[in-house]
């Protein structure tokens, strides 16, 4: 979503993005002329008249589970967004009985919060697991 018109979206997709991604952008490229939706989400930059790099994870009930907002010159980390979605999906499937520690990714240890775990995370989980290697 950006303040560009759908016509500009078409030009960008057809003339540039489709040369990087086969078949072009697979999801809807939304247009928010005037930035009204950006204002609703708190990512509209009034001074520049554009939206910042905001990314929102919305669950199947329409609840915002997380967001990240960057200034224009720094691109996002797509893998990190996907990791977060997977973590939220795991928590949802466990009906909130499981939690994903720092640095979790699929296959890594999850924690089951309980009275017994209070003060005992150090026995279950090591700081090294927060990192990729």
């Amino acid at each position: 979503m950006s303040v560009d018109s759908v016509f500009v979206h078409k030009m960008w997709n057809d003339h540039e993005l489709s040369k990087m991604v086969e078949g072009g952008v697979p999801y809807p490229m939304l247009s928010d002329g005037g930035g009204n939706i950006g204002k609703l989400y708190g990512v509209y930059d009034e001074d520049a008249g554009v939206e910042t790099r905001g990314r929102f994870i919305i669950d199947p009930d329409g609840i915002v589970q997380g967001f990240e907002v960057l200034t224009p010159p720094v691109g996002r980390n797509v893998s990190e967004s996907i990791r977060q979605v997977k973590a939220f999906q795991l928590v949802r499937e466990s009906k909130g009985t499981e939690a994903t520690p720092s640095g979790w990714k699929p296959g890594k240890k999850v924690l089951k919060p309980s009275p017994d775990l209070v003060g005992n995370v150090w026995k279950e989980w090591k700081v090294s697991e927060a990192f990729d290697e």
């Binding site: 759908v6 809807p28 554009v50 910042t52 979605v85 939220f88």
Partner: peptide
Amino acid sequence: PAYWKGKFVNINLSEYKGKWVLLCFYPGD
């Protein structure tokens, strides 16, 4: 309004209930 697979369509967020959604804003094409 959106450009999607060669067409111009109107997208309503509530149509995506039941799915996980990544909504991304960016400064411009």
